[in-house]
């Protein structure tokens, strides 16, 4: 039971569908407070749906989602965000026609403590100095790497307990990939729990504490990141059709 109590986020026997297709089959997993946990898997393994389920963008047909000791299954997305989850969506999804600063402030949308928001803005800009130079620039005009940083900074502005990230390194140049990963570690060291969905297994496991491998809607493999990184079955989970049992 102690393990369950330490879990900040817990998915319990989730079954979800996309139209008539079942995406998750009794999916259970948990994210412990203070850790970086990654969810790996090939195309169409159900990673994105997992993200949507956590954020309340899609309701599972059965099963429960728990966050911070309370059940959040079926809550509207804004209510879930309010409870302390920040989101870095797939492909970043910035508000391209708004300035960098406005994007940051949108990240703090659920908060009303003006003084603290201003403080956090300083703190976040210290973490992402590049954004400070561009506060008045339209977000859509920045490079992909800078946009990814803004997306992370935006999520931090809500003072979340947990940040969920959907493919944070997708489409970035190797240089930016390194930088984004380093930043994820930094954010985590400051006490924010991270749950990231990644296609790039080696990268994600390189910084994570724990990993899950999703294959056709089920956990095929899980364990401490260091162990998973050396596990040959992970290759089968991606490349082969054979089940990694």
């Amino acid at each position: 039971m102690s393990a369950t109590e330490a879990a900040l986020l817990r998915l319990d026997r989730i079954n979800s569908f996309y139209g008539p297709v079942q995406v998750h089959f009794d999916l259970s997993m948990e994210v412990r407070a203070g850790q970086i946990v990654c969810l790996l898997g090939g195309n169409a393994s159900g990673k994105s749906t997992t993200m949507k389920t956590i954020l309340g963008l899609q309701r599972p047909r059965s099963g429960q989602v728990w966050f911070d000791g309370a059940e959040i299954t079926g809550l509207p997305t804004p209510a879930i965000i309010r409870r302390g989850i920040g989101s870095v969506p797939e492909a970043r999804r910035l508000f391209g026609a708004m300035t960098v600063r406005e994007n940051l402030l949108m990240g703090a949308y659920t908060r009303s403590d003006r003084a603290a928001i201003a403080q956090d803005e300083e703190r976040v800009l210290a973490l992402f100095p590049r954004l400070r130079e561009r506060l008045k620039q339209k977000a859509g005009t920045m490079s992909g790497g800078e946009q990814q940083m803004l997306a992370m900074a935006r999520a931090l502005m809500g003072r979340p307990k947990l940040i969920v990230m959907d493919e944070p390194t997708m489409g970035l140049s190797p240089l930016f990939v390194d930088r984004v990963l380093a930043l994820i570690e930094t954010i985590n060291r400051e006490g924010v729990t991270i749950f990231m969905v990644e296609q790039n297994a080696s990268l994600a496991l390189g910084i994570a504490h724990y990993g899950y491998v999703l294959q056709t809607g089920q956990i095929a493999l899980d364990g401490p990141a260091a162990a998973l990184l050396r596990d040959p079955r992970i290759r089968d989970a991606y490349l082969g059709g054979t089940t990694a049992a």
């Binding site: 954020l55 963008l57 804004p78 965000i81 969506p89 026609a97 708004m98 406005e102 949108m106 949308y109």
Partner: peptide, 18 residues
């Protein structure tokens, strides 16, 4: 801001708590 954000990307706005 919420109005503009929603107009640009309502899904992302939702994930900001709008």
């Amino acid at each position: 801001w919420a109005v503009r954000a929603t107009a640009q990307d309502s899904d992302a706005a939702l994930q900001m708590g709008v």
